[in-house]
Design a protein around this nucleic acid. Structure first.
Lengths: 242, 242
DNA sequence: AAACTTTTTGACTTAGAGTCACAAACTGAC
DNA sequence: GTCAGTTTGTGACTCTAAGTCAAAAAGTTT
């Protein structure tokens, strides 16, 4: 049915239009600054039309968050294509995360925000599922790499179970983001930025887990350069450009 | 001035009354469920009186969060008194954190919530400072223990700088809490709980950092038992009781 | 081009945070 | 003890922005 198809396409396009503008308002005005009357003005439709697409303001914001996860999932996926040792591939995910933080500094706070009870519970359950879907997609990449490491022997017999390694790495990353946007962990004058310490912390943790090659036996600085060049050249141009 | 003193005490007591009831509403109804008209009803004062104490609803919630940090700071402080190796003392902080999570399961989400831009920026700056104060108090304990480890040689010559170790440990803890309340990292049927993996992750990280004695050379299970017994017996009775 | 369906919207309701002018209670001086 | 002055408390209000809905507009089918 061609007409139904066109309509569905139009629907999706408008949904995308709404999400993009909402993302913009969130980026520059924050959650409180996201006013649906203003958003309606911007997209040149009435507010009621927004409510044809989204159950509530919170539902809309969860939609924006899911959009961010989609981008994230895309970048993470490239890690699997990196030609090298398993630990290098895992490192590529870390680099992807850091590039995303530069490109979309408001992204992490939004992902945080939507997991607060007040927001989450007012969103449509289909949108919650979509969020979980995309979130799981990101995880899958990491879990797959850990499996490869176990299979190849880079993670040997006595190495910790997959769940430990994945929660550890995810925690290190999420925690660093939390510290980066907000918590005054160090006095400002020290100039210490949690996100700059993240790579070193990955290495400590993975050395502790015994993931070969250990940081003492390999030049991961060179790996980082290769990853940036081979996987994320396009994004890095954007980072430097804007 | 005795009268001024009594008045100030009364003021503080009422502030405490408000905070306690607000905490209760937050615990059981969440942020959206915290209705100031209802709170006024409960404390048997008018809503306007609440606004004599707090600049806004957000200010109030930040007050509640700071109250939680105070308790946290108290428990963390006990780690310094533990008689043993430096790494054992650091472990005591981790145990304290886990006990707090059991005692006040809503505590971590509140601490998260108040760091969102929308909440933070509507709170009074003095209350923001008070929050930083208490938060810094918690950190100080951990930093002090790392210093002791460097001084005693438990963290040797080539060990990572204080900033790395502190951000790493804090990240592991915060990240695990995030994962615990929300993110569906593992399918529910696996029964894997991020907070249960946290101790093992601390060990991996600290082994990676080379903090003696390494987990292979010491019975940290016994240490955990001693910490629970010697530092937190009272709190643990509460956990099991209620 | 009439009958019917879907989409859009302006004008509305509602919830609840936040304010304020006045009232009540307290204080200290005489 | 009572009165001027000060502090504290409140009922009744405003205001903002999310969310709703009946009817109009646009699109589709025969």
């Amino acid at each position: 049915m061609a007409i139904a198809d066109r309509k569905e396409r139009a629907m999706r396009e408008r949904e995308h239009l709404i999400l993009e503008h909402a993302d913009d308002l969130l980026r520059f005005n924050g959650y409180l600054g996201l006013n649906l009357d203003e958003l309606a003005e911007r997209i040149e439709y009435s507010k009621a039309t927004i409510y044809n697409h989204f159950k509530s303001k919170e539902d809309l914001v969860l939609g924006v968050a899911t959009m961010h996860l989609e981008t994230r999932s895309d970048l993470f996926g490239r890690a699997l294509t990196f030609d090298g040792r398993t630990r290098e591939r895992m490192f590529a995910i870390g680099i992807a995360d850091q590039i995303l933080a530069k490109l979309y500094p408001h992204g992490f706070p939004i992902l945080q925000l939507v997991r607060t009870q007040s927001i989450w519970e007012k969103a449509a359950s289909e949108r919650q599922s979509a969020y979980y879907e995309k979130s799981g997609g990101c995880m899958k990449v990491a879990i797959e790499i850990i499996r490869q490491a176990k299979a190849s022997g880079d993670l040997g017999e006595g190495s910790p179970p997959v769940e430990n390694i994945i929660t550890g790495l995810v925690s290190l990353a999420k925690g660093a983001h939390l510290l980066a946007d907000g918590e005054r962990l160090f006095p400002e004058e020290t100039g210490i930025e949690p996100l700059d310490l993240l790579n070193a912390n990955y290495q400590l943790f993975l050395d502790g887990a015994g993931w070969a090659p250990l940081s003492g036996d390999w030049d991961y600085g060179a790996t980082e350069a290769r990853i940036r060049e081979e996987l994320f050249a396009g994004e890095l141009k954007l980072v430097e450009g804007g």
